[in-house]
Design a protein around this nucleic acid. Structure first.
Lengths: 203, 203
DNA sequence: ATTTTTATGGTGCGATCGAACCATAACATC
DNA sequence: GATGTTATGGTTCGATCGCACCATAAAAAT
């Protein structure tokens, strides 16, 4: 076994090139040659690490998903000792907004893939996994908030959770298009959260 | 002036082919040859009516926008004599959902164009026009509802309007991905509207 | 009937695409 | 040091792309 090279590192390096190109010009611009140039490797290497172009697109998406989950966990972990339901839900929703270059790029990549998700069953499967889990997570957090008296019993936790996630997603698009600043987006989220989490200033 | 042919009709015929292809496989699949085949005309005709490929993409988008606006007006006109604010807002929001093949296709086309909107200033200008107007429209309707006592004075009309539009947009995406049925989507919208339009059954 | 403008089809060119193929440098193992 | 596997670069091929160019049918204008 010669020439041990960190395969995951190489794959990530190539995947990041795919992301940049997809975010910049859509999947049309993700050609093997452009990816190779952007990643600073030879085109042959793409075949070696990913195989065909479709497999490259799939692989880059999987790595992006793993990345998103890990970053989200990291950021949620920085919320402090006992965050409280309000803060946690806020953290989850803010993960959907393009508040920094990394998140902005990620959501642009998802946008570039979107239509493909419908046509390609394999990609679709990968894409459909995440959002539903998010809604359930938020719904559970709101329900916990009800147990703790931070949320009125009158609210429909599942319905509100779904609409919060969908709303954050919709606001994300407007920020990407430059119709709204990130600050305005956060304010809109906070406005809705203040409505749902009535009985809380801290937590 | 010979051979008078309905130019608009021809352009629409070609534009519809662009929409179908874009909805099916993204802008990558919108090649001149494929569009020509899909529209049942010669590739030469695309050049004649639209010019370059970029101009074709722009033209097809403009026609789509005009179409969307006209269809929305038509549907709103069928709401009956004195619709009331609740029903009008509902009608506007439902226009954002893929409740039939036409609306589904339209939103898929927008999705296919999305990343382009950021890179191409011309396309971006066309795309940015619509949504902001929608939010203002809904905000105005909610404000009118407040005047008429159908909406509490406590609600922030602008903030709620924005979140309603964004939420409808986000829900739209989940319906397109098959994560939610159109009926569930409508129910979610109605749930939010029932919260905002408190004092109304016939509204 | 001739002319002129509009509308349409076909064909060819240079560039680029995805992917298969061929070569070989690097290195662990024996 | 010989050997065999892993990792990388380069080249080539058939297909397809956008688009420019050439031809001509159809009909209004003269």
């Amino acid at each position: 076994m010669p020439r041990q090279v960190d395969h995951d590192r190489r794959r990530r390096q190539i995947a990041e090139a795919v992301w940049r190109l997809a975010a910049r010009g859509g999947l049309e611009d993700v050609t093997l040659r452009q990816v190779a140039t952007e990643a600073g490797v030879s085109a042959r290497l793409l075949q070696y690490y990913f195989g065909t172009r479709d497999e490259l697109l799939l692989g880059a998406l999987e790595i992006l998903n793993d990345d998103a989950e890990q970053r989200a966990r990291e950021r949620l972990a920085t919320l402090g000792g006992a965050p409280g339901m309000h803060a946690v839900v806020r953290g989850v929703l803010l993960e959907l907004l393009p508040l920094d270059a990394e998140r902005r790029n990620r959501h642009l990549v998802y946008a570039a893939y979107f239509v493909r998700f419908l046509a390609d069953p394999v990609l679709g499967k990968v894409a459909r996994a995440a959002p539903h889990a998010l809604e359930n997570l938020v719904a559970g957090l709101i329900a916990q908030g009800q147990e703790l008296g931070q949320v009125s019993r009158d609210v429909d936790a599942a319905a509100e959770a779904t609409f919060l996630v969908a709303g954050a997603d919709g606001i994300q698009a407007t920020v990407l298009l430059g119709q709204r600043t990130p600050e305005e987006a956060v304010a809109l989220i906070d406005h809705q959260l203040a409505r749902i989490f009535t009985a809380t200033i801290r937590g």
